[in-house]
Computed example of a mutant assay.
Amino acid sequence: MYSFGQLVKIPAVIMRGGTSKGLILRRCDLPQDSALRDQIILRMFGSPDSSQIDGLGGGTSLTSKLALIGPPSTPKAHIDYTFGQVSLEKNVIDYNVTCGNLLAAVGLYAAEEGYATLAEPITEVRIYNTNIDKIIVAEIPVEQGAIKYEGNFSIAGVPGLSSKIMLNFLDSGGTFTKKMLPSGNAIDTVQIKDGRRFEISVVDCVNTIVFVRAQDVGVKGTELQYPINSNAELLDTLEQIRVKGGILAGLIRPQESVRPTTHSLPKIVMVAQSTDYITLTNQAVQAEDIDILSRYISMGALHKAHAVGGAMALAAACQIPGTIPSLLTSSSGSAVRIGHPSGTMYAEAVVERKETDWHVIRAACGRTARRLMEGEAYIPVSVMAAHG
């Protein structure tokens, strides 16, 4: 940190990773006191404020993301990564979740900053994700001794073409609950306040996800953001189902008062079989190009595309006999093509039975990333003084 009159300057990098965008901050540039550090970061983002007009955040959950990075704390990794979801509404940063999309940005950042030595044709950057105590390998394309930025790979929700960054989540089963099927069952039934009962599948792979059939909550699974986000009754039903699934998973205590913006795990996803013709935000696709439809709810609203962690859990669930996704998918192999509001997403998972649970051998997907800017963020000295 550097003083600039009544302002403090902190080095920062803004990067896009997948369909997310956030700040990359080095731990060494921030105070060691976590409370003061978080207040500085919140001020940097412009939170709490739904528009984040006085900060660097983008006013949505997808653009209010944080990557705290530093030298590796384990010899198996090149870099440490701590993810934080910076709240728009509250003076809080949630470190109890992770973001797979931003991992692509962290992998690229590590390669650019020399945390990993470049090697052709692929540099494997081993990222230690402190949130989940797991190592993820980001495969960064390298050509003629330099990072290859241009390519012919695209992802739905992001315009243009780039080189592909493959993310491989090692040993990702039971990330938060230590069990791939936290309840021990492929399908459970939960009852909400008005007496309605719903079948759900709770799967923990990269993120803990509660899967429910779209048709069971009164939708088709082809809806875009407005029909979902404007339907308060539907969102309330999904939130009640999510909480019940969280109780089964041991992530939420019975009678605990929770909200999606303050208690973000588990996530809830509506899934459906692909239909004959599906209109998406930016395109229309044929049913044969999609194996399963997915609608991912993040912080109480429909994700404009699809979270990587949710895709990994969905791909794994499709491989586990008896789960709701496995009953709906048209995929018969390890790869699954997911239809989401912005297009399609490719993911793959390989699982095997292990005693009373399942083990994930591989969970991977392709992403793109880009450094958008680097410089210094300005923070009022008063933020420091208030926590001095």
Rank of each mutant, 00 (worst) to 15 (best):
T281Q: 13
S326W: 05
S257V: 15
I140R: 03
L280D: 08
I268Y: 03
G250D: 13
G17Y: 02
H359C: 11
T323A: 05
R295Y: 11
D80H: 05
A364D: 02
I41W: 07
T279A: 09
Y346H: 15
I53R: 01
F211H: 07
G366S: 09
M373Y: 10
S326G: 07
S51P: 00
E143Y: 10
D289K: 15
Q273F: 09
T275F: 12
N185C: 11
I228M: 09
G246A: 11
I122V: 15
C318V: 03
A335V: 14
A77R: 01
I192K: 02
A349D: 08
L7D: 15
F211Y: 12
G388R: 15
H359G: 02
P266W: 04
C99N: 03
Y226D: 15
A104V: 05
K304Y: 14
K65R: 10
I127A: 08
P71N: 15
L224V: 04
K76G: 09
S61A: 14
S87N: 01
L56M: 12
L314F: 01
G173N: 05
R242G: 01
G218F: 10
G114A: 08
M15I: 03
H340I: 00
S163R: 06
L167P: 01
I268D: 02
R367K: 13
E374D: 14
I165Y: 04
P380K: 10
V190R: 02
L327S: 15
V13S: 12
Y296E: 07
I132E: 09
I127H: 03
T19L: 04
L314I: 04
S332I: 13
K9V: 08
G55R: 02
K244F: 08
K164H: 08
Y2N: 08
I268M: 02
I24H: 00
I297A: 04
Y109I: 00
A156Y: 03
D236Q: 14
N131R: 06
A307Q: 04
V212K: 01
G245V: 03
I200P: 00
D94Q: 07
M299R: 03
H263K: 14
V13C: 12
D291I: 00
A364V: 03
P11K: 10
Y115E: 03
K9W: 10
G5E: 11
E124N: 14
V219Q: 05
V137A: 11
T63R: 07
E376D: 11
F153K: 04
A311L: 05
V269T: 13
I247P: 05
R213T: 07
N282R: 12
Y128R: 13
K193P: 01
L251T: 05
M312V: 13
G22V: 04
G245E: 06
I338C: 09
V142E: 09
